[in-house]
Design a binder for these strands. Structure first.
Lengths: 187, 187
DNA sequence: TCCGTGATCTAGCGGTGCTAGAAAATCTAG
DNA sequence: CTAGATTTTCTAGCACCGCTAGATCACGGA
């Protein structure tokens, strides 16, 4: 490995480390606890180093976590849906599980400022991929399948965030999921 | 009016002013632009004065805006629903309109940390009221009306926030609303 | 061995929420 | 009207935030 290659590899490795640490801290203490100084500490460097990896600082780091999360979400949905065409239940379950197990990542995905449409052509690839997986899994149908997908997805998202923020009865969780699945299936 | 009464009235008036200004700034520039120093400036006092009105500072102010918003949301829903029992459309419309017209207030309501259940016994009164109005307007039915309400409300909330954050196709707005109304009506 | 280049650090800017303690204003009573 | 008690307000500052200019260091190539 040449010196140049070595340098590139090191950079990449550290970039991954930053993202990993940011994610870990965020999951356990919330995004407010993810500060540039603390991240710098975690990687054993000083603060400005972060800006050589992510020009827009903390926002860029959150963005990286979000994109990583999108990829994982897409995988989770596709795995759940495999060989179960025609039923929305696995997708619903997989989506809500992801949101519950990785609340900070989920937050990063959906609080990330975004000018372009989520599933649109201009979106980052992982986002389009997650949206596509969702659209497939939710079994879009009717004369306007895109609209159907958006509405079904909205219901999922609402359930995920209201549940996380203690706006819904914790004990009725499975009942809500059943009700939603039935609602999405009936029409 | 005695000196003591005068004092109390002045305090109340200023408290209202603080809440009003916080809300105005938040609506036009986002909650990040609502700083204690700026609010102090707006009321012509210095920063620490805010803490004599709201012990927990900015969080307390956001909370006050949120509660005010809850009351207004409840009113908006009840007005829309008046004399239209059995249809969810007016409620859906009123809810989404509120979220769209007062995004910062809507944000305060749902980003406010809250340990207790939203509609539960321990919640602040305006919150319980808004939840009650929503439950009525959404025409809860079936053998588990509470769960129904939570699911329907989640769909509304998801639609509101995803739409606001540019995650959905802007031009399909009315189509989504129609689809949701149909979905909630069909079952 | 020297030099240039890139990575890294030091130091600091302007901002945040928040608070202790001094100063000012106001009310109460003699 | 004045003196003292009480309430309110302000000054000054803490610790932290994201971010950056410029000095410094380390390393690869000639």
């Amino acid at each position: 490995m040449s010196a140049g290659e070595r340098r590139v590899a090191d950079r990449q490795q550290r970039e991954d480390l930053i993202v990993e640490r940011a994610r870990t801290i965020a999951e356990s203490e919330g995004w407010a606890a993810v500060t540039t100084r603390r991240l710098a500490d975690e990687i054993g460097r000083t603060q400005p180093v972060l800006y050589s990896h992510f020009q827009d600082g903390k926002a860029g780091i959150m963005r990286a976590v979000a994109l990583q999360g999108c990829t994982e979400l897409a995988v989770a949905i596709r795995r759940a849906t495999a060989g179960e065409a025609g039923t929305v239940a696995p997708t619903v379950q997989a989506y809500l599980d992801f949101a519950r197990r990785h609340p900070a990542v989920y937050d990063a995905i959906f609080s990330m400022p975004l000018d372009v449409e989520f599933g649109g052509r201009e979106s980052p690839e992982p986002m389009r991929d997650a949206f596509a997986a969702l659209a497939d899994g939710l079994d879009a149908h009717g004369d306007d399948p895109e609209t159907w997908t958006e509405v079904a997805w909205s219901a999922l998202h609402g359930l995920a965030v209201l549940s996380r923020d203690h706006r819904l009865r914790p004990r009725a969780r499975t009942a809500r999921i059943s009700a939603l699945v039935e609602l999405l299936t009936s029409s």
